[in-house]
Design a protein around this nucleic acid. Structure first.
Length: 806
DNA sequence: AGCACGCCGACT
DNA sequence: GTCGGCGTGCTC
């Protein structure tokens, strides 16, 4: 008897292990390791989904243990291969999360099953009026419809005990592939030619249909094509089916997320630096060498071309390629370039696709129909086999770290897969993360530099505008005189401007001038932001929305003022200062709709506006030849965050956004407005000297005991009872302090910097450490120990190498 | 998660 | 006495 070890879809600490099931004889050849199945789980008739992680002959349970059988198979083919199963195990261990959650992250969301509980009536002779009413229409009802009615549930449970009703569990697969009706020819062209003369004179429609069939070379024709293009009615088709000339057939088709045709592009001539880069990596690809390359190239140095030609080399060697970009929907330009280069071989995975589209792209990869995968963070789990190279563009980007379970860093997963596939990884960036750059210094990674812009284009000239002076001189705090003049100049020249303001909405908060009262979200510990388009106050954390106050809720004063500038207010002010400006605003609020992002960028590319004003989402990857001016309205927003990576973030952001200027023939100019003109991150962004920034910042990290000199762990507790949360985190802190080395540094326990989100209180500890062999074991103990509290709504989360300490 | 079991208080 | 509230423990 063959047995299957199965991870069940019940994400708790206690069930985070394989369970053994018997494989029924009739399912034996439909099942393999990596298959999704439905299994009975628990005492009742409950069924859950599971993934087979291994098939064994014997098991280690007591001899008299009665095993259950697998109920049904969900897929014909395994959904996870050996590599991804192993990866899920490693991921669960290193991110302190449940294996089933890791598996879920790897699969497209369309594969997450829906559970349905159904109550079936067995005994017709029930004379309870309420029950009769319930089953009046149908013999089975959806349990969820009556779940909230305690009285009814109890009654039904009683009936269940007497075998008068039964509870049935359905595991429904949502992963429905898209099908289209096709008409298939059943007869040859010769037969058609025979039939035509024998047709009755009045069967004109049949004659038309047959002629179409003769004209169409392929055996299958879309039914919609027959009806729309050839105006052949459904009844005509049905008659032909009766005559057995054709048959209807459902054919699975792939949804194509990129309906817009992409223009074909061809390899560009490489400059010397690029040539060396491509060849160095290609050598590793060929030798199946597991190496990590850090490609440090200034903005505009042609990194994308290096990626594309490296992928080309991998394909020539018969291997596949995986390319990751940050939040891909933000950079349609890159996707189009890859699609334009490799055409049908490319599959794209990102959050901008619908569930169905994602599922189809995933299946194309799974079935080996795609050889190049481009995608955002989760695309690192694409079921691509025989990977020859993994590329991570903008490797420093914070979106590569997932901020809920499993809290993985894509870079680490990429390295794991590269090792499994014996292939190199390219980490590319103009401003590498300090972690990566430090590893390159220690020769853990191979450093490749692209120090020049392509065509020897000069880097844009960067000027810093001291806003303290501007404020004192003119009272202007959002737009300085030099920036306004420069913008006017570009508009006259018919050139374009990119303005970045890292704050959406209208004002950042609303304060009463009499008593200092700031309106806060009732669910979160955060002030509400004013939005002028909806005339409301919004919470950016939970989405809470309320009316704009006219009088102070605290002191009834009418002196309410708006502080801080968001993109909405900036747009309004800009139009006041430069009435002839045509401004496109790009932030979360204007890009929420699917495809809105791409549309905005296309409009900008078509010169429908001369100014693109947006939050940091405009800093990434935009490449418009007529943009010659970039303005950063307030460089301090990211600098003032109480986080040790604030300088790094600011430097990266400023460098990236500066790189948007002067990418073609025209040279670029950048203005950075700041209240901290002497800050080193801003000064070094001005000179665009990454290496110097790296050295300076490393010095600070060293003296302050921060990464990459120390490892870090963040432990968070949350729940709706603040007291409980606080005492829990204190307990955890004491437990760890007693067990770790004395040189481990504890920050906290303390309330998280946003201490309350959606009515949940958050407390945290951060631990900085160098070498803690016991750490992993201790943390596993904590998770195990506190899982009992999860039922009471008290949760403990562990984030290994958190991006932020906030 | 979701279900059963078991222990306690408040109802016909 | 028993119904139903919730705390606890287990699921191959």
């Amino acid at each position: 008897m063959k047995l299957a070890e199965i991870i069940v879809d019940v994400p708790t600490m206690q069930t985070d292990k394989p369970y053994t099931y018997m494989i029924p004889k009739d399912l034996e050849n439909q099942i393999s390791v990596g298959s999704r199945v439905a299994v009975p789980f628990g005492r009742g008739a409950r069924k859950v989904q599971g993934i087979i992680v291994s098939i064994v002959e014997k098991f280690s349970l007591p001899d008299n243990f009665k095993l259950k059988e697998i109920s049904k198979v969900m897929d014909l083919n395994a959904v996870l291969n050996d590599e991804l199963l192993k990866l899920s195990k490693w991921l669960a261990q290193t991110t302190y999360s449940f294996r089933i959650n890791c598996i879920d992250t790897m699969l497209p969301s369309a594969m997450h099953v829906k559970y349905k509980r159904v109550v079936n009536l067995i005994d017709d002779n029930i004379n309870d009026a309420e029950i009769l009413q319930l089953f009046k229409k149908s013999k089975s009802i959806d349990f969820d419809d009556i779940d909230s009615d305690k009285h009814l549930v109890n009654k039904l449970m009683q009936l269940k005990k007497n075998n008068q009703v039964s509870l049935e569990y359905l595991v429904n697969d949502k992963a429905i592939s898209k099908k289209e009706l096709f008409i298939e020819k059943n007869i040859t062209d010769e037969q058609i030619k025979d039939i035509i003369p024998k047709l009755r004179k009045n069967s004109t429609n049949q004659l038309r249909l047959l002629k179409v069939l003769l004209d169409e070379k392929s055996l299958n024709i879309k039914q919609t094509e027959l009806t729309k293009k050839y105006k052949i009615s459904n009844s005509t088709i049905n008659t032909a089916i009766k005559n057995q000339w054709i048959t209807k057939k459902q054919v699975e088709i792939y949804r194509n997320p990129y309906k817009r045709p992409v223009t074909r592009n061809y390899p560009l001539k490489l400059n010397d630096d690029q040539f060396v880069a491509v060849n160095t990596v290609a050598k590793s690809v060929k030798k199946h060498e597991n190496k990590v390359f850090l490609l440090e190239g200034v903005t505009g140095s042609g990194k994308t071309e290096v990626y594309l030609q490296t992928i080309q080399k991998a394909l020539v060697d018969g291997r596949n390629a995986l390319m990751l970009v940050p939040e891909i929907s933000l950079t349609p330009q890159i996707v189009n370039r890859v699609k334009g280069r490799f055409g049908e071989l490319v599959a794209v995975l990102h959050s901008g696709l619908s569930k169905g589209e994602r599922y189809d792209e995933w299946r194309r990869i799974h079935e080996g129909k795609a050889q190049v995968v481009v995608g955002a963070r989760s695309a690192i789990f694409a079921p691509l086999q025989n990977i020859g190279v993994i590329i991570m563009d903008e490797e420093h980007d914070p979106s590569y770290k997932q901020d809920d379970n499993p809290r993985y860093q894509t870079r680490e997963v990429a390295k794991w897969r590269a090792k499994y596939n014996n292939c190199p990884v390219i980490l590319g960036s103009a401003t590498p993360s300090l972690e990566s750059r430090a590893r390159a210094s220690k020769h853990v990674y191979d450093l490749i530099k692209l120090p020049h812009r392509i065509n020897n284009q000069k880097l844009p000239a960067v000027s810093i505008v001291d806003m303290r002076e501007e404020l004192a001189n003119s009272g202007q705090e959002d737009f300085s005189a030099p920036l306004i003049n420069a913008i006017k100049q570009r508009i006259l020249n018919n050139e374009q401007v990119v303005l970045m303001l890292n704050r959406r909405g209208f004002s950042s908060f609303v304060m009463c001038r009499d008593c200092g009262f700031v309106l806060k979200c009732p669910n979160c510990d955060i002030s509400l932001t004013l939005h002028m388009d909806t005339f409301s106050m919004k919470c950016h954390y939970c989405g809470h929305e309320e009316a704009i106050p006219k009088i102070c809720a605290n002191c009834r004063s009418r002196k309410i003022r708006y502080y801080g500038t968001g993109t909405q207010k900036a747009q309004k002010e800009l139009l006041k200062l430069i009435p002839e400006a045509k401004v496109l605003r790009m932030d979360v609020d204007t890009t929420r709709k699917k495809g809105a992002h791409e549309k905005l960028l296309r409009r900008f590319g078509n010169h429908e506006a001369n100014i693109l004003l947006g939050t940091q989402m405009i800093a990434k990857g935009l490449d418009f030849p007529d943009v010659t001016l970039v303005g950063v309205l307030n460089a301090d927003t990211s600098l003032d965050l109480p986080d040790f990576r604030a300088s790094e973030r600011t430097f990266q952001l400023l460098t990236q956004v500066s790189g948007r200027a002067g990418r073609a023939e025209k040279s670029g100019q950048v203005y950075i407005q700041t209240f901290n003109p002497d800050n080193y991150a801003i000064q070094l962004a001005k000179s665009q000297n990454y290496e110097q920034f790296y050295v300076k910042e490393m010095g600070i990290r060293h003296s302050m005991n921060y990464p990459p000199y120390y490892f870090t762990i963040k432990i968070t507790a949350n729940g709706n009872q603040e007291q409980q949360v606080a005492s829990k985190i204190l307990e955890i802190s004491r437990y760890l302090k007693a067990r770790l080395n004395s040189n481990a540094i504890f920050l906290g326990p303390s309330p998280s910097s946003i201490a309350k989100i959606k009515n949940q209180y958050y407390y945290q500890i951060i631990i900085k450490y160098k070498n803690e062999p016991k750490m992993h074991e201790c943390l596993e103990f904590i998770l195990n120990y506190y899982q009992k509290d999860a039922q009471k709504g008290l949760y403990v989360n562990i984030d290994s190498e958190p991006l932020s300490f906030m």
